[in-house]
Computed example of a mutant assay.
Amino acid sequence: MSVRELVVLGTASQVPTRHRNHNGYLLRWEGEGILFDPGEGTQRQMLRAGVAAHDIHRICVTHFHGDHALGLAGVIQRINLDRVPHEVTVHYPVSGRRFFDRLRYATAYRETVPLTDAPVTAEGPLATAPGYRLETAHLSHPVDAYGYRLVEPDSRRMLPDLLAEHGITGPDVGRLQREGVLRGTTLDEVSEVRRGQRFAFVMDTRLCDGVYALAADCDMLVIESTFLRQDEQLATDHGHLTADQAARVAVDSGVRHLVLTHFSQRYPDPAAFEEEARDAGFDGELTVAADLMRVSLPKRRQEPVHP
């Protein structure tokens, strides 16, 4: 069965709390697992959330502040300890290679798993997998930072009534799909585009072009909202977003499901983030992330996509 869900491992910003671990997010995308920003304590949170090292196929680090990367050492060593049977690819800003190398070899262990080092060197397409294309965009933070975006290729939905009207049945349907035209009938005449799903992960940043590029038309946007509107100047000074700003990005970008996370310890009531996002005009699905939560991607859009 197709599984596309976000497993939230940690939701704190710089300082963890009794209820919030440092960052960590596993996206299950069909049979693949993509781990984003493993902060300190991620290995323990994986155990609590029922996530195994075998579930990780790709690791994406937005930047090298500790709450987003200190868990790399433990996660990489666990991947090797458990002898994960597949290659694991790691992406991170190339400017932070020295930090990645230090974390990868922080202590002695036996390397048993191929680990592909694939740093981000520029915005744009980064990797292509069978079920998605991974893209990046530069963010605005005091250290070099990139956000990530998964784009599933569009496909075609065959329309039975139109197929019958054109007398196309059985093996001829497959022929038409492969060749694009059959006995004068084109694929466009008997099918419609089924838009692929889109997921974006945006961490520590001020408002910038990269935020909007990543969020555009996403089915799910996971985005930091470290501060509330009352502290917007503080957010700007430190390279962060408010819940109000994150929600306005979602509204402007056509996001269907907004997931707010990366909360400052200064705010004891998570309901304030939901209230602020709604006040900003976001009326889609909204989740204020909590540790160990699982959030399913929305069902596919039903409306056809027109050129």
Rank of each mutant, 00 (worst) to 15 (best):
T205I: 06
G174Q: 09
L207Q: 09
D172I: 00
D252G: 12
L187T: 09
R195V: 15
V249C: 12
R194D: 15
C218P: 10
V222E: 09
L228P: 07
D172S: 10
D209S: 15
E189Q: 14
T169A: 14
D252I: 03
Y212C: 01
F227V: 09
G170E: 07
L221D: 11
A247R: 05
L214Y: 07
T205H: 02
A250T: 09
T242K: 09
T242I: 05
L182A: 00
G170T: 11
D219Q: 12
G254R: 08
S225N: 10
V251H: 08
G239H: 04
A246N: 06
S225K: 02
V222L: 15
R178Q: 14
G170I: 01
L176S: 02
Q230P: 00
G174F: 11
L221S: 10
L182S: 02
L176W: 05
D172P: 02
D237V: 11
V190M: 09
P171Y: 03
L228D: 01
R206K: 12
G184C: 02
T205S: 15
I223T: 12
L182Q: 02
G239D: 09
H238W: 13
R248I: 08
G167D: 02
H257N: 04
Q197C: 13
S253Q: 13
F199P: 08
R248E: 12
Q197R: 15
G254M: 01
D244W: 14
S253H: 08
V181F: 06
R198E: 14
R178E: 12
L182I: 04
T205D: 04
L241I: 11
D217I: 00
R194H: 15
M203I: 03
D172W: 07
E192K: 03
R195G: 13
E189H: 08
F199I: 01
L234P: 02
T185V: 15
D231S: 11
P171G: 04
R195K: 15
S253T: 13
V202L: 03
H238L: 13
A243H: 03
D188T: 11
E224K: 13
Q177G: 10
D219L: 06
L187G: 00
M203D: 12
D252H: 12
A243T: 00
R175A: 07
L182M: 07
G184V: 00
G239L: 10
A216G: 06
V190P: 01
L176E: 03
I168L: 03
G210N: 06
